[in-house]
Design a protein around this nucleic acid. Sequence first.
DNA 1: CGGGTTTGACCTGCGC
DNA 2: GCGCAGGTCAAACCCG
Length: 491
Amino acid sequence: MGKFSLGPTLDTSEPLVLLNQAPRWNPFAMVPDGSASPRVEGSHRKVLAEMDLFSNHAHKVAVKKENEHDNINMGLNLDTHDRSISMGDEISSAGNENQTTSKLAKMQNELQRMNLENLKLKEMYLQVSNNYKALQMQLVTLMQQQEQALSIQKQDHLISQQVPRQFMELGPNTTQELTTSSSEEKTISASILNKAELPKTVGREDTPDSDVWMSNKVPKLIVPDQTNEATMRKVRVSVRARSEASMISDGCQWRKYGQKMAKGNPCPRAYYRCTMAVGCPVRKQVQRWADDQTILVTTYEGTHSHPLPPAAVAMASTTSAAATMLLSGSVSSADGFMNPNLLAQAIRPSSSSIATISASAPFPTITLDLTHPPNTLQKVNSTALESHPSSQFFPSASAMPLQAFHPGGGVYNQSRFAGFQLFHDKVSNQLIPHQLQTQPQTTFADSVSAITSDPNFTAALAAAITSIMGGNVNTITSDNNENKNAYDSTH
DNA sequence: CGGGTTTGACCTGCGC
DNA sequence: GCGCAGGTCAAACCCG
């Protein structure tokens, strides 16, 4: 790297000199404080890194050189040494004050230019961010309209016309239960798996209006017999996550009512019932995965009939959204039908995500696989697809929890489904009832922290800025920690 | 003592 | 009809 080893010696030393002169460095200040500061505090180093975020290569070299030493004075000495070598004749000669002054002026001009550039970049970043948010909102709006037009209205009407069901309170779109007679269960199951099938099935009865679901021509398809729980069939949402705990805490209170040894799995399956409200129909099964016992599979069934605490909103709304996706046919089936739509695309924008439904599953089940590294592009887990009978659904890396289910982390954040917040925000912001959306998002800060600490985030940011500026900002990633520290120290 | 857990018995659905 | 497996019940037990 002769580019940095010869001529730019003076340039690399400039940030350090200026830093020493500025006890409280303001990256956006036009003229640095001229007061001398013999000892550089740690915070100065952090701010220096922040200042150097969008500077040219020469200054990045200065930061890197500085980071290699325990304190900044060492680097300064090195630079001074270098300068003495390259400018030995100039230093030895008298009357070079003019040169020093002019050099200082150059440095100040350079600093001013860098500050202006930083401001421009900052504005550009904000603009890109705002544009992204606007596009995301438009996408969500479109998805909502599409969903409502194709399936939600049908399902809502179906549920609302049935015997009053306490499961509806979580969300009008959460039609997780369809009561059927056992003999026609498969017909209903097949129908609900593809929203396009719903009107077709109904259409065969020549009753295009939505009241067909309550018409006398199809009475056997809907048996509003709440007393016979055994005949009820429910959509299930299975969450697969790595956890060493016996049960993932999702914010709700559960009471264990049974345990069984399931075939093909050495680990027992535990049955839990929600006890947050009397008569809440929600139940869940917790079982370790046979292939990898570090993975805990939690299967939810039903919808809460009571207000949820903030800690439980994310999980409930996520499973609700997943169930809605399943009912609306937003996932692909192992049987061959593929019905992608914008909602599914929004949840799993990366091409590595997949969603399938197996007809062999006893109930329509959608599985949220959260066992993959959150920050890497996932590949389809073919073994999971083969070994798990129910549907598979892989949230995208970008939408996956960043902390709660980080593999290899040992103990995960079980106090709350922090990571689900992101997933929940993306998927079900338009699907959950307003009462739930008003719940405080207590884990947003954690999520943001996780994002900013993610090297891929800075890499993506660097790529985005590079695409705009065409400049060289590829060292942002390596300076990420320093930048984050600088951010923390200034907020 | 109340609430939760454990665990064996029981019920139901399904395939042969 | 029988056996198997999944799911549920409820009495006994445990714990704070």
